[in-house]
Structures are given as C-alpha cells and as structure tokens.
C-alpha cells in the first residue's frame, strides 16, 4: 500500500479554552453530544450552542420526515426515503448496515454498508441512499457506485443526534430497490465530552491512501479524508449569531476519467468526512479524487495505480 498525505496537517482539536492564542481562527465543531456540566463555564457555553444546534432543532420543531407510525418499516417512516422510492416497495433486509448498537459519541458514528452484489457490468448496485429519520434533516449520504468498485461496500462516519434507526436504500442497475436498517442507541456521556474547536487553516487538506499495485482482478481499498468542519447551519456562535452551513457536499472518485464512486454528502456526515471503499481497476492508470464544498471551492488529488 502506498500512502500519501497531501499536506502537513496542523488543525487542532484540543479543547483547552485558555490554552494558547492560536484560538482566534478556531470555531467550535458541531457536535450533537450535549456537554452539560455547570462546573465548567466552557461546557455551559457548548451546551447552549448545542441546544441551538442539531439537537435543538429536533426538540423544538417537528422532525421532518419522521412519521409517527412506529410499527411500519423504517423506509415507510422517513419522508424523503418514501419520495425516493416513489411507490416502489424495496426488498427489506437486503442491505447489511454495520453500526455500533450503542454509542456514546453521536458526533462520529462509524458506519459500513455492505450489499451482496456481483458488481458486474450487467448486474450491479447503482445507488445507495442513507437516512437517519431522527436527525433534524434525515438525509445522510447518497452514493453512486459503478462496477469499478468491485464490491458494494463502503464506510463513513455520521452524526446522530439521538437514538434512532439508520436506514439504507439501494437501487440496482435493473431498477430493483433494496432496504436495510439498524437501531442505534445514542447516550450522552459526560465522560467523553469536550469543547470542539477547529483550525480553519487546515480546511480542505486531504488524506488519501490507495493501493499502488494490484494483481489483475484484485480488489484494492481506498481511504480518503478531508479536513472540514461540516458546519451544519443549525448552530449559533458565541454571540448568538447563526453559523451558516458550510459543508463538503460532493465527492468523486475516478479511474482514468471513469467514475468509480460518486457521493453527495449532507450535513449529518461527521466533521472531516471520511470515505473508505473498494476499487477494482481495469488496468493501470490514474485514480483521481475530487471534493467540492457548498461554496463551490474544490480540491483534487491524483495517484498512479499499476495493475499486473
């Protein structure tokens, strides 16, 4: 495995409020974990931010897309998922979602999606849509796959602001729909709390790891990460002003100019978006990765991969 880090990364997630004066460029990272504890003024502030943020939106308003018929399938309860299906009935239980059953850190919940598919030219998973019905906005991630991934499997990290079930829908190239869901319990743990800060100098720095050389037919693995706060637009700053939404909303992986995987990211993807997925290149060539921010700013990285 070849490894390249595009830049020295210096962002700091340290929490100390009075630690140093590097803080001027830092803003708090959105986190759905309330940090209660009046013993610590910094934590009190974080709590206020939070209440105004992700969790607050869920508490004060109606949770969009979450219907109240608990007995029904997960895909029936989430409005954008129903819209996406547009009347189709998915085959339930056909997607494997790997998520912790209990998490104490709702700000970064590891998630792996796996679907049994040959991923051949005439039989492959074309799209996967992920939802969290209990979040202020249910959409998590849309992923468009091609046979160049070799296997229908990818991992990321998501934000969950309370206990809920995470839903995945998938569409095959033949237009069939699959579904799968999984319950996650999110607990608030003072033991894990911190004040999040973010160094804006580091934003848009990327890390990528790709296989340098593969045997013909071998499936390799790509890991990518970009430094980014994934600011939800649901929080207030210290002065009570809303912090505007600022997220990476698109990621593309290409091999010799052909799409391997394309993703639309929503604000419930954790800070420093992480994507891990397979790659099965049809020969030697160049793998290119693009990230685009909602401001229109983008960044790309290319890597040579040899096969044979």
């Amino acid at each position: 495995m070849e490894s390249r880090v595009s830049a020295e990364v210096s962002f700091s997630v340290e929490a100390g409020l009075n630690m140093n004066n590097k803080n001027d460029k830092k803003q708090r990272l959105p986190t759905p974990v309330p940090e209660s504890g009046p013993a610590n003024p910094g934590r009190r502030r974080a709590l206020r931010l939070l209440v105004a943020g992700l969790a607050g939106a869920a508490l004060t308003g109606r949770t969009p897309g979450l219907a109240n018929n608990r007995g029904s399938a997960a895909w029936e309860r989430i409005e954008p998922a129903r819209e996406r299906l547009n009347g189709a009935t998915p085959k339930d239980g056909a997607i494997k979602l790997d998520l912790p059953g209990v998490t104490q850190d709702g700000s970064a919940v590891p998630l792996t999606v796996e679907i049994d598919s040959p991923m051949s030219e005439d039989d492959f998973i074309e799209a996967v849509y992920l939802y969290a019905g209990g979040n202020p906005t249910p959409e998590l991630l849309d992923v468009y796959l091609t046979p160049l991934v070799g296997r229908a499997r990818f991992s990321t990290r998501i934000r969950l602001n309370k206990s809920q079930s995470v839903l995945a829908l998938a569409r095959t190239n033949r237009g069939e729909w699959l579904a799968g869901d999984r319950e996650v319990r999110v607990t608030v743990s003072g033991c894990l709390s911190r004040d999040d800060t973010y160094d804006f100098d580091a934003v848009m720095r990327t890390r990528v790891r790709v296989p340098e050389r593969l045997e013909p037919g071998q499936i390799g693995e790509v890991r990518t990460l970009i430094d980014h706060p994934m600011e939800t637009g649901l929080r207030e700053d210290g002065e009570g002003q809303p912090i505007p939404e600022r997220i990476i909303n698109e990621f593309r992986a290409e091999f010799n100019g052909k799409s391997v995987l394309k993703a639309r990211l929503y604000r419930a993807i954790s800070a420093n978006p992480y994507l891990r997925f397979p790659i099965a290149p049809n020969g030697s060539g160049e793998a290119t990765f693009h990230w685009t921010e909602d401001t229109g700013e983008s960044v790309s990285e290319s890597f040579r991969m040899e096969t044979g």
Binding site: L17, S36, G37, T187, G190, C191, S193
Partner: peptide, 26 residues
C-alpha cells in the same frame, strides 16, 4: 475528575440531568 450520577429513565440508563461534569478548566 469527571463525576456523574446515573438513573433509569424510560427503561434506559442515563445521567441524571443537571448532575455531573468535569473539573473546571483553568
């Protein structure tokens, strides 16, 4: 230190609201 008190609420464990926290920073 970090200190907390826990209870059962709606059939689940949770921190007693308003309790607990870490030592003050600074």
């Amino acid at each position: 230190t970090v200190a907390n008190v826990y209870e059962v609420h709606d059939g689940e464990l949770r921190e007693v609201p308003g309790s607990g926290g870490v030592s003050p920073s600074g």
